[in-house]
Amino acid sequence: MNKNIIKEIFTSVGISFFFLAIFILIIYGGFNKKIEYYSSLINTVAVNGYDDINKFEYDYETQKIVNYPDYGKKYGNLKISKINLNLPIYHGDSLSILRKGVGHYAGSYFPGEGGTIIFAAHNTANFFRRIQELEENDLILIETEYGTFKYKVNNYKVVSEKDLEAFSIQDKREILIMYTCYPINRQVVGRRTQRYVVYAYRISDEDE
């Protein structure tokens, strides 16, 4: 291939790159903000795989958890010796989580943070069927990788599933709310429109 042909080819390719430069200028000049906006919109639904959380970071001074577990991850155990209960606690309360253990409502605080913690579980024999037997001053233990927390039962009642006040979240005092579908009696069939709720407040080792 002689020099003239090569020169022609390079000139043509050069012109193409020149056109590309104009195209890039048009995009950046006219559409850059729109590109950034729509890219960030799509990237909000892009999740970079879950890292296995094995260790929590709990700040004892601020009483706040620094590394929260991913949704669906087990992070502790719920133990109630009076009713022989020992169940894993998962972050989240989807139907698939409730099949495995106690679901921690993701919008509530974590044990040790000083606010309302909400736990749910099914009303079957493996899970919360016997919470109806709990009475005032019964002890509840939550064991996590960042510490063990103790609670004493101080109230229990049946509420409508729509009674949001029964599950209100606050940050003034650490309260544990455990609930399950009611009636618990397996002879009653159908959609459960009520909840059996147990309230417990956190105690120190001295109070036990």
Binding site: L95, S96, R99, T180, N185, V189
Partner: peptide, 13 residues
């Protein structure tokens, strides 16, 4: 199937 089975657990059925 899984979601229905999960749901039916508390219903008594």
């Amino acid at each position: 199937k899984e979601n229905m089975e999960n749901y039916i657990i508390s219903s008594g059925f």
